[in-house]
Simulated scan of single mutants.
Amino acid sequence: MTVAITGATGFLGIHLVRELLAEHDELIVLVRSSGPTALRRLMRFYAELGTTPAEVRDLRTRLRLVPVDLTAPGLGLRPPAFRALADEIDALWHSAGDTDLGGGLADLRRTNLDGTRGVLALALAGERRPRVYHVSTAFVAGRRRHGTVEEDDLDDSHGFENFYEQSKFEAEVLVRRWATEHARPVAVLRPSVLVTDRAFRGPRPGHPVGILLRRMADTVRQHQEPSTGRGSARTEVRVVGDHEARLNFLPVEKAARMMVRLAASGTTGLVDTYHVVARDDVSVLLLTGLVERFLPLRIRLVSELPAPLSALEFATSLQPALAGYLLHHRRLDASRTWSRLGGTAGTSEPSPPRIDLDYLSAAMRRPPLLGASD
């Protein structure tokens, strides 16, 4: 079986590469940059996953890198090359995406919507009718903050917390429509917030929580008034949130294993949608506690922001990684996921790590405000 993947150098993608290579001898990797540049980056990231030097060297023969532009007609390839590529593929994993929670809609659509359209065109052009595995997000549920989100739910009536969610929602709509129009099976994989406790020594794919810390550090640096106190004085920042709210955090390593196992479990319908989530949610206080551990802030959750706001409070209220998410009480149903995985991981699967403040902190570096980039 010939498997192709996009987004291989991403936070999730590099883990998918590892899991897929455990099942297949070779992968076709669709990359944005030149082959040699992307290969060096993949090898560097792969080494950070605890792989052996021999496994890293083997990437040179086990990965076939094809530079493409997902948003261009024919992926930017000449028609014969595009068709030849399409004719090789038996399974196509689409993990590439723009995860910028603060991005503009046009830019996010270019990657998340137009890029998905390009992947589907590749899947349609091949004679082997490859199965498509589309990595979406549980946050296509948007601003629905209460109740249970079922795996087949795809509803925009609640609106969205940011344009990232909207662009991923639109991409899912496109995937479902494509599957119906062409009678082609698709698996939609919706991970929750992906995290890790693995600290990379060098540059690494964007860690979602690390990105939040960097942005918060930038906000503090730009808007915090100079301290008149001594020592470790903290600035209190009021943020709209609920102490009882909860989010779903899942180790990225486990998410990749779950996705590849789900792919191996076969097809149940035309569009199989899976919530790739942890069984238990965590308190949003874990997120605010992480901010407090790395930045000189004291976060106070309030039901609404009273006037007047400090410049720092106003800027923090606009942070797309905080605004709205500190009010989430919804539950992500994963009945289909657990059913396909046999109820849960079996005895051969290690127990999931406890996601707490120490777990999240282990992967973080000091943000720019405190001396280094994440």
Rank of each mutant, 00 (worst) to 15 (best):
T9Y: 11
A86S: 07
E181P: 01
D218S: 14
L189I: 06
L20M: 05
Q166V: 14
L213W: 08
L262E: 02
L262N: 04
K168Q: 10
L194D: 02
D90I: 09
Y46M: 01
A96N: 14
P226Q: 13
Y164H: 02
S303C: 12
L59Y: 13
A96I: 15
M43I: 05
R44T: 13
R177H: 09
F249N: 02
N248A: 04
V193C: 00
I5P: 00
R221Q: 15
P191F: 07
P67K: 03
R109Q: 07
L332M: 03
L290H: 06
D114H: 11
A264L: 11
L12M: 13
Y359M: 14
V66Y: 02
T52F: 10
R198P: 00
T288F: 12
S265N: 08
R365T: 07
L212Y: 15
G103M: 12
A179P: 00
T2R: 07
S361T: 07
L63K: 01
M1Y: 09
V237Y: 14
V291R: 05
A245L: 14
L326T: 06
H24M: 06
E23Q: 12
L270K: 03
T137H: 04
D356H: 10
A264N: 10
S157Q: 06
A183K: 12
E26K: 12
E48D: 12
A307C: 12
H207N: 14
S361F: 02
A183I: 13
I28T: 12
R18I: 00
L189Y: 09
V175S: 02
R41L: 13
D280S: 11
H15L: 09
L332C: 02
V68L: 04
S335C: 04
V31S: 15
D152I: 01
N248P: 05
R143L: 04
S95C: 14
I211N: 03
E225V: 15
A81Y: 01
A141W: 04
S34R: 06
V240C: 13
A91N: 01
V252P: 00
A123V: 10
S265L: 07
G115T: 09
I89C: 03
G210A: 12
H182P: 00
R279I: 02
H223D: 07
R214M: 11
P251Y: 10
F249T: 01
V260I: 02
G269W: 05
R184M: 11
L369S: 06
H24S: 03
T273G: 00
A4L: 06
G118R: 04
R365V: 01
E225M: 15
H158T: 08
I14G: 10
L287G: 05
F160Q: 05
L332G: 00
V302K: 12
S373F: 11
E236M: 14
V175L: 00
I28N: 05
F160G: 06
R246Y: 03
L297I: 12
R128P: 08
